[in-house]
Computed example of a mutant assay.
Amino acid sequence: MSLPSRVRLIDVGPRDGLQNEKQPVPAEVKIALVHRLQAAGLAEIEVTSYVSPKWVPQMADNHAVMSGIRRPAGVRHSVLTPNLKGFEAALADAPDEIVVFGAASEAFSQKNINCSIAESIERFAPVVEAALAAGMAVRGAMSCTVGCPYEGDIAPERVAYLAGLMKGIGVQRVDVADTIGVGTPRRVQAAMEAALRHYGIDEVSGHFHDTYGQALANTLAALEMGVWNFQASVAGLGGCPYAKGATGNVASEDLVFMLHGMGIETGIDLDALVDAGAWISEQLGRPTASRVGRALLARRAA
Rank of each mutant, 00 (worst) to 15 (best):
161 Y>H: 14
162 L>I: 03
162 L>A: 09
162 L>R: 11
163 A>Q: 03
163 A>Y: 03
163 A>I: 01
164 G>L: 01
167 K>Q: 12
168 G>Y: 04
171 V>F: 01
171 V>Q: 02
173 R>S: 13
173 R>T: 13
175 D>L: 07
177 A>C: 10
177 A>N: 02
177 A>L: 02
177 A>W: 06
178 D>V: 10
178 D>A: 09
179 T>Y: 03
182 V>I: 14
182 V>E: 05
183 G>P: 02
183 G>F: 01
184 T>F: 14
184 T>R: 15
185 P>C: 02
186 R>S: 08
187 R>A: 07
189 Q>H: 01
192 M>N: 04
192 M>G: 00
193 E>R: 15
193 E>L: 12
195 A>H: 01
197 R>A: 14
197 R>W: 12
199 Y>V: 03
200 G>M: 03
201 I>Q: 05
202 D>E: 15
205 S>W: 07
207 H>P: 08
207 H>N: 07
208 F>N: 06
208 F>V: 02
208 F>W: 11
211 T>M: 04
212 Y>A: 14
215 A>W: 08
215 A>D: 04
216 L>A: 08
216 L>T: 13
218 N>Y: 06
218 N>Q: 06
221 A>S: 05
222 A>I: 10
222 A>W: 04
224 E>L: 09
224 E>T: 12
226 G>E: 11
226 G>R: 08
226 G>A: 13
227 V>A: 06
228 W>S: 14
229 N>E: 02
229 N>G: 14
231 Q>M: 10
231 Q>D: 15
235 A>Y: 01
236 G>N: 13
238 G>C: 14
243 A>E: 08
243 A>T: 14
244 K>D: 14
245 G>N: 12
246 A>E: 00
246 A>K: 06
247 T>V: 13
248 G>N: 15
253 E>L: 07
255 L>T: 04
256 V>W: 05
257 F>D: 15
258 M>D: 00
258 M>E: 05
259 L>K: 00
260 H>N: 13
261 G>P: 00
263 G>E: 02
264 I>A: 11
264 I>E: 08
267 G>R: 10
269 D>W: 02
270 L>T: 01
271 D>W: 10
272 A>E: 10
273 L>H: 05
274 V>S: 03
274 V>C: 11
274 V>L: 01
280 I>P: 00
281 S>K: 12
282 E>T: 15
284 L>P: 10
286 R>F: 04
286 R>W: 06
286 R>Y: 07
286 R>A: 08
